[in-house]
Design a protein around this nucleic acid. Sequence first.
RNA 1: GUCCUCGUAGCUCAAUGGAUAGAGCGCUGCCCUCCGAAGGCAGAGGUUGCGCGUUCGAGUCGCGCCGAGGACGCCA
Length: 613
Amino acid sequence: MDSCDPLLLLERAFRAAIAQVSGADPAGVDPQVKASADPKHGDFQCNAALGLAKAMQAKPREIAERIVAAVDLGDLAERPEIAGPGFINVRLSTEALGRMLASLDSPGLGIAPAPLPHAVVVDLCGVNVAKQMHVGHLRATIIGDVVARLHERLGRKVWRENHLGDWGLPIAMTMASLRRQGRDFDRLTLEDLNAAYRAAQLEAKTDEPGLAAALSTHAGPHRVAELQVQSESAGAAERDAKATLLRLQSGDTATVRDWQRLIDVTMKEVLATARTLGVKLTDEHSRGESFYRDRLGPTVEAFLKSGLAKEDQGAIVVPFADRERPVLIRKGDGGFLYATTDLAAVRFRVQELDGGRVIYVVDARQRDHFKDVFDAIRLVGWDRLPDGTHAELSHLAFGSVMGKDKRPLKTRSGENYTLAALLEEAIHRGVEQVQRRAADPDAPTHALPQDELRRIGAAVGIGAVKYADLSGDPVRDYVFDLDRMIAFEGDTGPYIQYAHARIASLITRSGEGEAAIGASAFLAREPAERQLALCLLRFPGTVLGAAEHLAPQRLCAALHELANAFAGFYEACPVLKAPDAATRLARLRLSSLTRRVLAEGLGLLGIDAPERM
RNA sequence: GUCCUCGUAGCUCAAUGGAUAGAGCGCUGCCCUCCGAAGGCAGAGGUUGCGCGUUCGAGUCGCGCCGAGGACGCCA
């Protein structure tokens, strides 16, 4: 089977050569082959000679000579050149480039489905029942979706787990509050739930510290009385909520029905938002906290039985050897905490979903929490898969979305932005852009009907927001700036979409059919053609690396580079006006493959790639 | 107080331990006889927060400072 990844072929060849020269076991050799940053250093370089110098007591250049003499590259490349202190520079042959491009241009685009044992579990979205989605959920949802798509593309079984906050006192409080108001549970909107949730939170604030302070500072009797009344009504609300929670836990029919109603109302809007975002998230991906309710007691029991947990000031905690802070798994009143639920969830995901890789796409502020949970899981051995191997537990931590003032994003009136409002604005801006361009009589979108323009505009607006979010290091905060995100210039989603649309348009204008283009040979002789070809051949490795390192930004950067490489090619090598028919077809084929890779890459990012825009 | 994350060009961000630290935005000057100026070419802009160490080689790894943000047992 001929690989279309030059890196793999070169690594194989150099590993053998280095083993021969150094006498080491080939399996343990790191060939240190990488793409050259500068074309004048060749297409690839092998840096292994520099590190071997000391152990072999020879000059690096001398070792490089011996590696070059030993390496068998077949017709992959000419004889490598040695440069600088001992770099080995490799320039691929035109024949090899053409052959690898042809191999890449297959239905799978060179990404071999290599289904590994065990599933991948991605915890994403993480909404709470009765709460509006906000920008924080944007990140958990779209980053999680991309991570899931990447693994699916590699042939892995992927479980998308939307771990809803659908259980516990906050939900009971909201229900109790709505019932006191005499609300009709069949006519609720998420807006209503959100208001009730906030009201319930407010009611429950006992302000006991305030009361104590008022007493100790001898505040006026009026103030003390006021605080006492507030505290008493809060106490009543809390008792009401706790009673509601008890009824829910004991399965009281009416209470359970109302609870289900709250979930339905919330999920209807969450799933609608997921559709707007182009995220693969449906009802079947919901598995909320309530799912684990019968597993919480046994979880604590298991930790107690194994001697890993102990009682401390009435609570049950799991201490760690390397830090002061223990993790609480049961409260003094017997209630469970979110760590308990997460412990039960990790166990379920590893042992019952067969998750060999369990990924939590959650806010970076919960880093310590996940460190505790994962460490506790390893202590108790619940990271062991049915076949005895250990699951990899990862927290893909992401930073906050900020406003231009570098503070958490607010609307002009100072309210928290709902995700729905944010997306609506993005779509509006995208449609505006597309309509403005369609006004140009030369634009292929000129004669398109309005609803088609709106569809394209929505793809641009949503693509802009998603790309901006995905193109940076997830752990860092970023500033939400629609003007920058939606620009057709620069490292943006619309830029890549536009590059894709332009290539599609170029191919259409050529008048050549898919069959004629596909039958042409690949030719990459000119420097700009070679650069484009090398960029294309990097794609399979990029997808693999992005999945392995949970780094969507790598894929973004690769697509941006590819779009740029195409611009360079287009500038230097006439396509439609190529010197002869064969060259014209060959360049069209290179263009066509570029378009496919861009579309595939955007697809992995969950971003639409319109043919015209 | 303890712990975690992040400090790279004016701004937003890249750079599996490799050659002269790269893009984009913004700025200056040129360039549309491939389709749609997505851009191309040239230029200005850097002590990679500071110091010490490991290494043939450090923006990258280790230690210590400085700065910003965050998390810290009975909320989730």
